[in-house]
Write a protein that binds this DNA or RNA. Structure first.
Lengths: 198, 198
DNA sequence: GCAGAAACTTGAACGGTTGCACTTATTGAC
DNA sequence: GTCAATAAGTGCAACCGTTCAAGTTTCTGC
């Protein structure tokens, strides 16, 4: 038995059920489209009751974002465990370039990305889910900089950084987009729009 | 008959029905709470069928945001018709201070604001609705500055400015919040976080 | 082994939303 | 004025996401 002994059969079965549901959902959604597949269809394909489905997932949209679980931890870690001497904003820029951009560009994810971006309900759900990390990120930044937990500059920075993926989707060069927006956040719009325009 | 003659009885009745529905909805929501009032309740109080209700409003949440119709036009106008010599960002700051802040602080709106902020579904709907103006605002800014319609600096500015209300709700001094965030947008986080931190 | 917890099932229900077939009121053209 | 066309509104049934209640099966710790 090479596997971890601490995890009992119960937990394993639960995880398997969850996985079966998520797999069934993604399959059906990719084949027929999100809105044309009912939650009952998914449950039937996974061979469980709809009640069980909702015991594992809080809603239909959540079936799609199964795998994006610990993004928040990574986000906070990127700020907290950054290399010495590196600024918070630069750490976030590096994280964005290293984690978000390749993920969004991964050709294996092409169909998945198309599904999400082509379904308004999913796009909005994803963005909202993403934005819910603003509180944690804001706190982490504030703590790193020795400021009040609810410091406005930190809260604003967190929200704006988390808006970047939404800004980047649909643009030809996501990498350049991320770079440019971080430059804007650092230097302000004064530099971009000119002294008269600002 | 002092009223405009061009508007026929049909349109007047339609508007009256719409108003009756919106009034009934707000009354019931304020009294019993958004989630404890069904859309059928609203329809009955307004003395129409639910089918009619949904012919006037695209969804339950929309019943609440009845009056926020031409915000987008005002937003674009604030940029387009700004005083000569005033920068785009400053025009947006002035608009925010003149239009958003007093509205949010209006004591006559207290119960309404409490309803929206106290109901997650309504808060999220409102924010999403708000963000849908990003495209129009971005285009207006770009046109004012003679840039490409999809210029990144303009798109980012639009989204970030529209985030400000969400950032300001729940803070003790909304006016100061708006001022600070605009300063941040203009000067960048470099100035706030220090040269080493940025 | 056994008691109890946890996963799962069945079936029904609720509330938001839409489609359909139908009535009624308003309009514009003649 | 009449009439056909159109738009508003009605009633009803259905679909869908979601939840609840009560019961069954399966695992776990002692």
């Amino acid at each position: 038995m090479p596997d971890s002994p601490t995890v009992g059969r119960r937990e394993r079965k639960k995880a398997a059920t969850r996985q079966a549901i998520a797999d069934a959902a993604l399959e059906l959604f990719l084949e027929h489209g999100f809105e044309r597949v009912s939650v009952r269809d998914v449950a039937e394909r996974a061979d469980v009751s709809t009640t069980t489905l909702f015991a594992h997932f809080p809603g239909k949209e959540a079936l799609v974002f199964d795998r994006e679980a610990d993004v928040e931890a990574e986000l906070v870690a990127a700020v907290r465990d950054r290399p010495e001497g590196l600024g918070v904003v630069e750490a976030l820029r590096a994280h964005a370039l290293a984690s978000w951009v390749p993920l969004a560009a991964d050709p294996r994810r092409e169909r998945f990305t198309a599904l999400v971006n082509g379904t308004p309900a999913l796009r909005e759900y994803g963005e909202r889910m993403w934005m819910r990390h603003a509180g944690a990120l804001s706190s982490a930044i504030a703590e790193e900089l020795g400021r009040d937990e609810d410091d406005l500059a930190c809260a604003a920075l967190a929200r704006f950084v988390l808006e970047i993926p939404a800004l980047a989707t649909g643009r030809h060069d996501p990498r350049a987009t991320v770079e440019t927006v971080f430059d804007l956040l650092i230097n302000g719009w004064r530099s971009q729009l000119g002294p008269d325009a600002g």
